[in-house]
C-alpha cells in the first residue's frame, strides 16, 4: 500500500539545513495497523505530513497505492488526499457551522459526488461510527468523543486507501479515548489500513507494528509486542 524509500525532508533555517527526515525507508501493506511514535521534534509530524500528501519530500520516493506521489503539484496532491487519505486530527478539525452530516459530506463534495448519493454515504458512515440520529447536530452540540467519531466518519467517507490519525485520543478523556481506540480496532478488523501517529507508548502498543522515529531517522521498526518488550 505504502512504499517509502530513502525519504528525506530538509528545511533551510538561515545558513543551516535542518534534516527533519533523513533517509527513511519502510513499507506498509494494505490492512496493517501501524503506529508511528517519537517525541516532539523527532520528525514524526514531518513524516505524517508527507504520508498525508500535505507536504512533499526533498529527496526519495513515496509510492502510495501504486502511484509515485513525491513530486506532484499542489492540485494533484489535493486530489490524492481527497481519494486516498482519510485524516483524523487531534483537535477534530470539523467545520463549526456545518452539521455532522455536512462535515462528513465534505470530501465527497470535492469528489463531485451528486447530492443524493453523498447524503446516503454520509449517513451510512455516521451510522458506522455509532452516531445515528445525530446527523443534524453541529459540532458544538456534540461531546468530544462524538466529534471525533464525526471526524472518523468523514475520514471514511471517500473510501480512502489509508486512515491517517494524528494523536486521535490526545484531546479526549481516558474513557472516551478507549472508546475511540476500540473504533479504530473495529475498523482495522474490517480491513482498513490505519497509520496512527502518537507520542504515547500506551497508544502505540495497541497497533500491530510500531515505527519509532528519532532525530529524523527510524530507530526501531518492530511488531508491537517485540517493541514493547
Amino acid at each position: 500500500m505504502i512504499t517509502v524509500k530513502n525519504l528525506s525532508r530538509h528545511y533551510q533555517m538561515g545558513p543551516t539545513i535542518v534534516k527533519a527526515l533523513d533517509d527513511v525507508s519502510f513499507t506498509i501493506e494494505g490492512g496493517e495497523f501501524v503506529a508511528i511514535v517519537g517525541p516532539s521534534g523527532s520528525g514524526k509530524s514531518t513524516l505524517m505530513n508527507i504520508l498525508g500528501c500535505l507536504d512533499s519530500p526533498t529527496l526519495g520516493s513515496y509510492v502510495l497505492a501504486g502511484e509515485e506521489v513525491s513530486h506532484l503539484k499542489p492540485n494533484q496532491l489535493a486530489e490524492i488526499r481527497n481519494r486516498r487519505i482519510g485524516f483524523v486530527f487531534q483537535s477534530f478539525n470539523l467545520l463549526p457551522r456545518e452539521t455532522a452530516l455536512e462535515n462528513v459530506e465534505l470530501p465527497l463534495i470535492y469528489q463531485g459526488v451528486p447530492l443524493k448519493e453523498r447524503k446516503k454515504i454520509a449517513l451510512a458512515m455516521l451510522e458506522r461510527v455509532g452516531l445515528e440520529g445525530r446527523e443534524k447536530h453541529i459540532p458544538s452540540e456534540l461531546s468530544g468523543g462524538q466529534r471525533q467519531r464525526v471526524a472518523i466518519a468523514r475520514a471514511l467517507a471517500a473510501s480512502p486507501s489509508i486512515l491517517l490519525a494524528d494523536e486521535p485520543t490526545g484531546a479526549l478523556d481516558t474513557k472516551t479515548g478507549v472508546e475511540i481506540m476500540e473504533l479504530f480496532h473495529a475498523l482495522h478488523k474490517e480491513g482498513s489500513t490505519i497509520i496512527l501517529v502518537t507520542h504515547d507508548p500506551g497508544i502505540a502498543r495497541q497497533a500491530e507494528r510500531v515505527i519509532q522515529i528519532q532525530d529524523g531517522r527510524i530507530l526501531k521498526d518492530l511488531p508491537s509486542k517485540e517493541w514493547a518488550a
Partner: peptide, 15 residues
C-alpha cells in the same frame, strides 16, 4: 483553519 481543513480533505486551489 477552515481553509486548511478543506484543503486537507481535497479542496483544490480553484475550489
Amino acid at each position: 483553519r477552515e481553509i486548511g481543513i478543506r484543503m486537507a480533505l481535497g479542496a483544490k486551489t480553484g475550489d
